[in-house]
Design a protein around this nucleic acid. Sequence first.
DNA 1: GGGATCATGTAACAGGTTACATGATTCA
DNA 2: TGAATCATGTAACCTGTTACATGATCCC
Lengths: 214, 214
Amino acid sequence: MARRGAKTEIRGARSGDPGGDGGLPPAAQAILGLLSLSEASGAGDGYGYDLARQFGVGQPLAEIIHLEPGMLYHHLKRLDRAGWIAGSLEPQGSRPPRQIYRITDAGRAELRRWLTEPVARTREIRLEFLLKLYFARRTDPDLAAGLLAEQRETFGRLIISLSKQRASLDQGSAFSESTPDGDRAFVREVLDLRLAQTRAALAWLDGLVSSGAA
Amino acid sequence: MARRGAKTEIRGARSGDPGGDGGLPPAAQAILGLLSLSEASGAGDGYGYDLARQFGVGQPLAEIIHLEPGMLYHHLKRLDRAGWIAGSLEPQGSRPPRQIYRITDAGRAELRRWLTEPVARTREIRLEFLLKLYFARRTDPDLAAGLLAEQRETFGRLIISLSKQRASLDQGSAFSESTPDGDRAFVREVLDLRLAQTRAALAWLDGLVSSGAA
DNA sequence: GGGATCATGTAACAGGTTACATGATTCA
DNA sequence: TGAATCATGTAACCTGTTACATGATCCC
């Protein structure tokens, strides 16, 4: 079981990907977003320590994501290697030199792609969707409006799908005849919980739209 | 930056703990639960391949947790090292031998402790609480009723806490005066989402109780 | 003189995902 | 004959957490 002479060439296909959409982890997207905003509106200077402040306590981003300095510098290196950002060392005189990062054209395209796509799963609304909403609004109101519309449609479809699954459970098509009653009732409860959570998320999205916060 | 001559003695305090309560990861608790049930009710034989079947498609557990064989065997080894379960190699004649695991007294105590404690965060209801409910019901109806009651109280307190945070935002105690209006409105929306999700979870719990599914 | 701040990281560890390794046996 | 099943794992990669390393300078 020692993997001798294996064909370890195949290395694409990103493993260990919790996000699910094959893209960057949410923290990296947030860094990309901050670097984009700092260029557009001059808020922030684009180096590690300054970015760390924007993720620190009292800042709005800290309400949805926690990013320790270690992971922040890790993501900066990966984004640089991937070509989404470009770093340049700038001496500070007496202070230690700073690695200043700027978002590249490829990085801007990647960010825009991310800001356009809604999240697929209900649990992703707490972290990933809130990040998208935060940066979409600060980038372009139309982008935020489009994201909101897409997200409402996605969750609307998800609610229909879950409802169908729940209905078919009572007809017994899924989960063969032999499934114990207790197990069947449990699966029904699991679906009810998912429906309740998704409906609550959709209602919250509707509230955002009707309060005009595009 | 090379960590020369460091005092690396301090090594307790479990790092990298996503569960949060300092205990075993949910998947390991589920394995412990299955081994406990297989002793009590004779369902299951207590070796890796058989446990993998109980996590496979079509089984109720597969609706809430995905456990690949690799991680399953990993958790079995860790549970064995920790003393919660005890393995013994049993030859099968022509078939490959099986590592049969049985839950120990310490393991039963750990499982009971886990089944007694509600989850602290709303997002943990989807995975960890559903697992607790599943095993608590199949272990002892009183245990399940107690867990449900504790969980409702925990979420009730959480809702009060979130409501207070939201109210204090409007009074401006948190987030100093200088915080931009957009940021303040965003934090309000984040709190609204958390409230909506927690209220939906609590309503679902209330539904479980009133439908008599203790 | 000494602690907070500036600035960038590394080390060790934990959980998780996907793919692959190994070798027998049963069954179509 | 060859695919599915039985049975147990390893390898390589990923994200994430906590703690520590390094060395300057600012401010009390």
